[in-house]
Computed example of a mutant assay.
Amino acid sequence: MDLPEGELRLQAPTAGPWDIPLVLPSPGTYRMRWQWVFNPDLSPITSPLKGCDDALYNPRGHEAAMGDRDQYCLVQVWRIAVA
């Protein structure tokens, strides 16, 4: 992903953009790895990527730890080229 300003803003489909930007060390090209945990008892979750409308696979077993939250997301970001 090319991030020419060195910032990434997250946005929830139902809640809109977060007020806290993710500021990266410098502008450049980055790779990302995303891992999601969803609460399957609240609703199916679809991919945040454009054009992917299928419900995402969601392994059971995390319901108790989720409490009233519908999802958690771990994002790992690393730079592969400086702008």
Rank of each mutant, 00 (worst) to 15 (best):
D70Y: 12
P48Q: 13
Y72H: 07
V23Q: 04
P13V: 00
P25C: 02
A64G: 07
W34A: 06
W78A: 09
P21F: 08
G51T: 01
L22H: 11
A64V: 10
I20M: 10
N39F: 09
L22Q: 11
G6F: 07
H62Y: 12
P25D: 13
D19I: 03
M1P: 04
D70R: 03
N39A: 13
A12P: 01
Q11S: 14
G28F: 03
S47D: 06
D53A: 10
S26E: 15
V75F: 04
Q11E: 14
P4D: 10
Q11N: 09
P21Q: 03
R33D: 15
P44G: 06
Q71F: 13
I80A: 10
I45E: 02
S43V: 06
P59M: 10
R33V: 15
T14G: 04
L22V: 15
P4R: 10
G51Q: 02
A12Q: 08
P17K: 07
T29L: 07
L42I: 15
T29R: 11
V37E: 13
G61W: 09
G16P: 01
L49Y: 05
E7I: 15
Q76E: 15
S26Y: 11
G67P: 01
V75Y: 03
D2H: 06
Q35P: 00
A83T: 13
R33H: 12
Y72S: 08
P44W: 06
R69T: 09
V37K: 07
